Computed example of a mutant assay.
Amino acid sequence: MAEWSGRPAYQQVAQALRDQIRAGSLRPGTQLPSLADLMQEHRVSSTVVRMALAQLRADGLIVSHQGKGSFVQERDAGAQTSPAVERGVAKELLASLDSLQDRLRQLEERVSRLEDPAGRGVSKT
C-alpha cells in the first residue's frame, strides 16, 4: 500500500515493483500482475498504477504489449545499463538522500529539545 511519505504514490508503487525485480521475485520475461491486481495490492487508483508502469518502462525495466500486459524486460548478460535506468537510479538515490537529510534534521531538533531542560533548544554558536 502506498503510504503518506511525501513521495508520490506512483513512485512508491514503482519502487515496490522495482524492488521485486531486483530481488528476483519478478524475473525477466515474467508478466506483471494485472492493473486491477496492482490497484488492489497497493490500494491505489488505476492512474497511479499506470504512472508507475510508465516510469518502469522509461527506466527500461519493463515492456508492455497492448492487450497482453506488462513484462519484466529481458536482459542480455553483457548488456549495458541504459542512460534512462542510470538517471532513474540517480534520481532515486538523490530522493533517498533528501529524505534521510530531512529525517536527520528532525532527529537533531528532537535531541536538541530533549537536551535543553527549558525546551528552548540548544543555540548553535
Results as ranks from 00 to 15, higher is better:
residue 19 D to K: 13
residue 82 S to W: 00
residue 109 E to R: 08
residue 71 F to L: 02
residue 9 A to G: 01
residue 63 V to Y: 10
residue 40 Q to K: 09
residue 33 P to D: 06
residue 113 R to S: 13
residue 7 R to E: 15
residue 97 L to H: 07
residue 28 P to D: 11
residue 18 R to F: 15
residue 86 E to I: 00
residue 41 E to R: 12
residue 83 P to M: 00
residue 111 V to I: 13
residue 17 L to C: 12
residue 64 S to P: 07
residue 100 L to C: 03
residue 25 S to R: 08
residue 121 G to D: 05
residue 68 K to C: 05
residue 85 V to L: 03
residue 7 R to H: 03
residue 48 V to F: 06
residue 67 G to R: 08
residue 57 R to S: 09
residue 53 L to C: 05
residue 103 R to V: 01
residue 13 V to T: 15
residue 70 S to N: 10
residue 20 Q to C: 10
residue 76 D to G: 07
residue 16 A to N: 15
residue 9 A to K: 05
residue 113 R to A: 14
residue 58 A to C: 06
residue 65 H to Y: 09
residue 98 D to A: 14
residue 51 M to R: 15
residue 66 Q to V: 09
residue 74 E to V: 05
residue 30 T to R: 02
residue 55 Q to T: 08
residue 109 E to Y: 04
residue 121 G to Y: 06
residue 49 V to T: 13
residue 25 S to E: 06
residue 35 L to K: 10
residue 16 A to L: 11
residue 53 L to H: 03
residue 119 G to A: 07
residue 76 D to V: 01
residue 14 A to D: 13
residue 41 E to C: 03
residue 84 A to C: 01
residue 40 Q to R: 11
residue 26 L to S: 06
residue 42 H to I: 03
residue 42 H to A: 03
residue 26 L to N: 11
residue 24 G to C: 11
residue 32 L to G: 06
residue 59 D to L: 02
residue 69 G to D: 05
residue 73 Q to L: 02
residue 56 L to W: 12
residue 73 Q to P: 02
residue 6 G to D: 12
residue 98 D to H: 12
residue 8 P to T: 14
residue 8 P to N: 15
residue 9 A to Q: 14
residue 93 L to N: 07
residue 75 R to P: 00
residue 86 E to N: 00
residue 63 V to Q: 11
residue 27 R to E: 12
residue 33 P to S: 09
residue 74 E to L: 05
residue 41 E to V: 06
residue 64 S to V: 02
residue 76 D to A: 09
residue 54 A to Y: 02
residue 113 R to P: 00
residue 98 D to V: 11
residue 101 Q to C: 06
residue 32 L to Y: 10
residue 4 W to A: 15
residue 61 L to W: 10
residue 56 L to C: 11
residue 81 T to K: 02
residue 44 V to T: 13
residue 47 T to E: 12
residue 86 E to Y: 01
residue 47 T to W: 05
residue 51 M to K: 15
residue 97 L to N: 09
residue 91 K to N: 08
residue 7 R to W: 07
residue 18 R to Y: 14
residue 79 A to E: 12
residue 73 Q to N: 08
residue 86 E to K: 04
residue 62 I to S: 12
residue 103 R to C: 04
residue 49 V to A: 09
residue 68 K to M: 07
residue 54 A to R: 14
residue 28 P to S: 10
residue 40 Q to A: 04
residue 119 G to F: 04
residue 51 M to V: 05
residue 82 S to H: 00
residue 13 V to L: 15
residue 99 S to D: 10
residue 66 Q to F: 11
residue 98 D to Q: 10
residue 24 G to A: 12
residue 7 R to V: 06
residue 104 L to R: 08
residue 79 A to T: 01
residue 96 S to P: 01
residue 52 A to Q: 14
residue 114 L to P: 01
residue 78 G to K: 02
residue 71 F to I: 00
residue 25 S to P: 06
residue 38 L to Y: 04
residue 66 Q to D: 11
residue 118 A to I: 01
